[in-house]
Amino acid sequence: MDKIAKQYPNDVRIVIKNYPLRSHKQAFKAALYCLAADRQGMYYAMYKLIFDRYKELKTNEDLPVTFAKELGLDMEQFYRDVQDPALQKQINLEKEQLRSTGLRLSVPKFLVNGKEWDRKQSLDIIIENILSGK
């Protein structure tokens, strides 16, 4: 997604939604940390750090707190935001949105202009086709 965002800064909008699987215990908390970072404009920086070092979360699910410090976030606000029930509500809303499609509940899951991307074609080709009106 990072590559796509850089390749098509004007033509592509990426919406990131959470669907933390129950089998991945750290995933829900990781999503909360991202949303808390978002309140200080650092969602994507936190997202990338967590994504890159996800395996480390298995032994330390609060590793994103270290990331938050590295990113220079206001930690008092960060801790407060992580506890905010509104963030849990946001994650549950995003989960429900995927459930409402009736699509198979596997992640990552992508919709491109509302259609499920089945990965038979590369994203670049699909985007180019849309942009050229095919």
């Binding site: 997604m1 796509i4 965002a5 098509y8 800064p9 004007n10 033509d11 592509v12 909008r13 990426i14 919406v15 990131i16 939604k17 959470n18 669907y19 933390p20 699987l21 991945h24 750290q26 995933a27 990781a30 999503a31 991202c34 949303l35 978002d38 969602y43 994507y44 997202y47 967590i50 994504f51 996800y54 979360l57 995003e94 995927l98 992640v107 990552p108 899951k109 992508f110 919709l111 491109v112 202009n113 509302g114 991307w117 994203l123 985007i127 849309i130 942009l131």
Partner: peptide
């Protein structure tokens, strides 16, 4: 959370769990 312009011709929605 979104990246990119609201007016973009292509919108990609991704659900993730950091796998």
């Amino acid at each position: 959370f979104t990246i990119g312009r609201n007016e973009a011709k292509v919108t990609i929605v991704e659900w993730t769990d950091f796998q």
